[in-house]
Write a protein that binds this DNA or RNA. Structure first.
Length: 272
DNA sequence: CTGTTAACCTGAGTGC
DNA sequence: TGCACTCAGGTTAACA
């Protein structure tokens, strides 16, 4: 479900409720996520306040006044919802954070590809965050960087920009849309992009992600922000999910191909 | 090292 | 209704 704009939308919705708040209780109903929720989580985190809520790629990181940090990932179907204490528990509501304010932060994740881990105080880094590429909005992520990193790489450019070691945040939807706007076919070898194309692609990735954040993310099926609200970027999608429709620019029929087992959409006329 | 594939898991949708 | 099948916004472990 959530790519960078969706995670950022959740972060912004959550922050006002979480910052400065003490976590009274953590209720874990189902610890079997992507990795098991650490048994020590509840003991270590309850009684402590949240001092910051950051995003790194598609991870959310909540720092506590103890120095411990909670790492959250929404996987494909995860949600973090702000609800009242008496809100009935639904089938896939795996974890509740009960705050001193009387608000509940509820983690729901039907497919359980998400994660909730502890990054203990004093540990410089966490294995999951180590080796991550730059944020797309960092100055480090620019045309020169993409050009340099892509030399000699035979993988498709789509897989390349979805690779979190190159740049974080672009998932299937936004990689697909960025490539359309940059005029590059998803299956082109990364090594065969010109420097000018790298410039264009970088600026399109940034632009798309920025616009998607402004519109509260993309809701195709079930993405929702912290208050259950849908995003609006799906209205801006020009190729994703539009196989067989006419291209918005030239009218040519949009094609669907598989790139590493993921659906990709492109216009055979606008993208080469 | 690079690149490809299967795997994790549930639910929604489709066709018979 | 039921069954079989496909697909879904992510990531990594295991392989060639």
């Amino acid at each position: 479900m959530p790519e960078l704009p969706e995670v950022e939308t959740v972060r912004r919705g959550l922050a006002p409720h979480l910052l400065g708040q003490r976590i009274d209780t953590i209720v874990v109903r189902e610890p079997r996520l992507r990795w098991p929720i650490p048994e020590s989580l509840s003991r270590r985190a309850s009684g402590h306040s949240v001092v910051s809520l950051m995003r790194r790629g598609k991870y959310l990181i909540a720092a506590l006044d103890s120095g411990d940090r909670l790492i959250l990932h929404l996987g494909m179907s995860g949600r973090l919802l702000v609800v009242d204490l008496d809100t009935p528990v639904e089938k896939h509501d795996h974890v509740d954070f009960e705050l001193a304010s009387g608000t509940l932060i509820r983690f729901r994740d039907p497919r359980r590809f998400g994660a909730l881990l502890l990054w203990p105080s004093g540990e410089e880094t966490h294995p999951l965050l180590e080796g991550m590429g730059p944020e797309p909005f960092d100055a480090e992520f620019n045309g020169a960087y993409l050009f340099r990193r892509s030399r000699g790489r035979r993988v498709s450019i789509k897989s390349f920009i979805m690779n979190g070691r190159i740049v974080v945040g672009a998932g299937n939807i936004y990689a697909t849309e960025s490539l359309f706007r940059a005029g590059i076919r998803p299956r082109r070898a990364a090594s065969r992009l010109s420097r000018a194309e790298c410039d264009r692609l970088v600026s399109m990735v940034r632009k798309i992600l920025e616009e998607a954040i402004d519109l509260g993310g993309t809701t195709l099926r079930d993405f929702a922000g912290a208050h259950g609200e849908a995003g609006y970027f799906q209205q801006e999608l020009l190729v994703y999910g539009r196989e067989g429709e006419g291209c918005a620019v030239c009218g040519t029929l949009i094609k669907r191909v598989l790139v590493n087992q993921r659906s990709s959409f492109y216009c055979p006329h606008c993208q080469c």
